[in-house]
Design a protein around this nucleic acid. Structure first.
Lengths: 111, 111
DNA sequence: TAAGTACATTGCAATATTACGATATGTTTT
DNA sequence: AAAACATATCGTAATATTGCAATGTACTTA
């Protein structure tokens, strides 16, 4: 196996899981935080900052791009990465839609 | 490989990634939503609700428990699962600490 | 245009995840 | 105590992820 049965779940559940998967690696969290921190848009200086090989960083960047949370613009021979503001807000809201479901308005008697 | 170099990253990054990994499966999102929805604390009725085998659900429950987001209490021969309120808030805050870093107070000129 | 720089992609080895049948453990009912 | 439940754990097959060296692609500078 090793393959998720995504047809069993609704779109919200699958989408949230997909985004969470992208955040589910410390290198990718670190990359995001670098982009947040750096005044100028950081590119492959990430290879210096984090201690991973260039190929590995590139792979992580691709996954971050795959859910649209970051975007890259070609800047001569370099590539400038940064947060995609629209998508950032969307993702933030997606998570908060889940997180704000608790505590429920009607109290529960459980546990 | 297949093994994350977690020593390269700080605690916040590793912890957020660990929690995100637990949310990174639609079945686990679905389980959480069932626990949120059900007035009484749902147990292995989850096997009925979601279309997965009992062993699979049990495995997902264990992962949710591993980060403390849910807790189970033995109720006779059954087990009653529910959200752990403290941990829920902690996790919500962890994510929002990241999410609220954007947009930055000082505007950026990038992209 | 050749050499250098920056980044992406490919290919591969090590490890992790997903799913489930089978089985173990513990509880309740008969 | 035996049978019937409820849940956890084990073992295993299929697939996914992580990391990197090697290589490809594209721009820049000499």
């Amino acid at each position: 196996m090793g393959v998720t049965k995504s047809d069993l779940f609704n779109e919200m559940q699958n989408e949230l899981a997909t985004v969470a998967k992208v955040l589910a690696h410390p290198a990718r969290v670190a990359i995001i935080q670098q982009l947040l921190k750096s005044n100028a848009c950081i590119n492959g200086d990430l290879v210096q900052e984090l201690g991973l090989a260039q190929a590995t960083i590139s792979q992580h960047l691709r996954e971050l791009k795959s859910v649209g949370i970051i975007q890259g613009t070609i800047e001569g021979s370099r590539i400038s990465y940064c947060i995609n503001p629209m998508r950032w807000t969307e993702i933030k809201n997606q998570f908060n839609q889940l997180f704000d479901q608790y505590p429920p308005s009607i109290p529960r008697d459980c546990c």
